[in-house]
Amino acid sequence: MNSSKLWTLCRIVVFIMVILIFSPLVIPVGKADPFLLGMPYTLWMGFLVSLILLALTIIGSFVHPGRDE
């Protein structure tokens, strides 16, 4: 897969992530369970989402078609 396609894929994944962020999967209303490492669900899920977004930014910066301009 060339870098242009990978960059498009990155953008699609970020778009899907944004939809998921506002779904009950990440922010269920009034629900703190299950806890992970002592943290309530929305918090550890928020951390996970943040790390995935950061990883996508890192990947995106390497496959961006304009990287060498």
Binding site: V18, L43, G46, V49, L53, T57
Partner: peptide, 23 residues
């Protein structure tokens, strides 16, 4: 804890958009 979504997650999406539209 929802404040994490308000700022941190929003900032991470912003950083990706910085890469995309900033270019």
């Amino acid at each position: 804890v929802g404040a994490w979504i308000f700022l941190a997650v929003s900032d991470l999406v912003m950083v990706f958009i910085l890469l995309w539209i900033g270019y």
